[in-house]
Design a protein around this nucleic acid. Structure first.
Lengths: 134, 134
DNA sequence: GCCAGAGTACTCGGATAATCCATGTCCGAGTGCGTACGG
DNA sequence: CCGTACGCACTCGGACATGGATTATCCGAGTACTCTGGC
């Protein structure tokens, strides 16, 4: 899965948990709907569990359940839960500080990216999981 | 380089070309400032050349040059030149159409993502390459 | 002294190897249900 | 007939291979400067 499709899959999962509520859903079942491998689902759900959006239960009749109501979960929360700190990444290797551009570019980029991220998060904040129910 | 750092590097390059104008700059020199491999620079610049932002010249004293003024190039243009169509990707594998959620999720996601992309592009449109000069 | 021509150095661009990350497979840990046995 | 205890099936979660994509190296094509030789 390309890195930036994680949000799509996360939304898909949460919508599914919402529709099936209060049933506990297994990663295998979710994978069948998303059309991918159960491990991908589990890895992604680990982040959502950590963020407190989902609860998990091992064993027979176990699986995943929404911990909160679907209309209280915004896409911004989901996005942050996935630890995708910013849509744009800075340089992987530090630019050359001996170059006048390289020395200053990262701080200037950060400023711009922070503004953009704020705008993006406020957009994401207006959408809820319940908006995706069929 | 992680996929989403391409914009950072592109901005870095264009800023460098602007500062050094009207000199022709080689990919090796740029790579020294960005701190990566010249091939990475060349591949990225191929997109910018194709988009008409940069001109290229082989041979001695050759290199890359800005074709337009730095204050006329917006980040939105650069972003589009890199062919990064959207910050968020849809599912790589088609969701299961037999599932009610899977059947409708992609069109709902597209609607939301399109709105977000518009917002993002208008943000990017307000910033220019000249904003990054040291 | 001046001009011409060949050589050389430097550049981009594409083809090929190497590395890295995401994905898939496997196995262990934990839980709840079902069943069987004893009272 | 009822209760308890054991076994089994099903689930998540982490460790280890595998494949594709990104990155780095190599080689070819093109251009301009320079140097040398002849006039």
């Amino acid at each position: 899965m390309s890195a930036n499709s994680k949000l799509s899959i996360a939304i898909h999962i949460l919508t599914l948990l919402h529709v099936r509520r209060p049933e506990a859903i297994s990663s295998a079942f979710i994978a069948g709907s998303v059309n991918t491998n159960p491990v991908v689902i589990r890895r992604l759900l680990a982040d959502l569990v950590e963020a407190g959006l989902v609860s998990t239960q091992k064993g027979v009749n176990g699986g995943y359940q929404l911990k909160r109501s679907a209309d209280s979960i915004t896409l911004a929360e989901v996005f942050l839960a996935l630890k995708e700190t910013s849509v744009f990444g800075l340089h992987v290797a530090k630019p050359n500080p001996l170059c006048s551009v390289g020395k200053t570019i990262e701080s200037k980029l950060s400023t711009v990216y922070n503004q953009i991220d704020e705008t993006l998060l406020s957009s994401l904040n207006e959408k809820k999981i319940s908006d995706f129910t069929p």
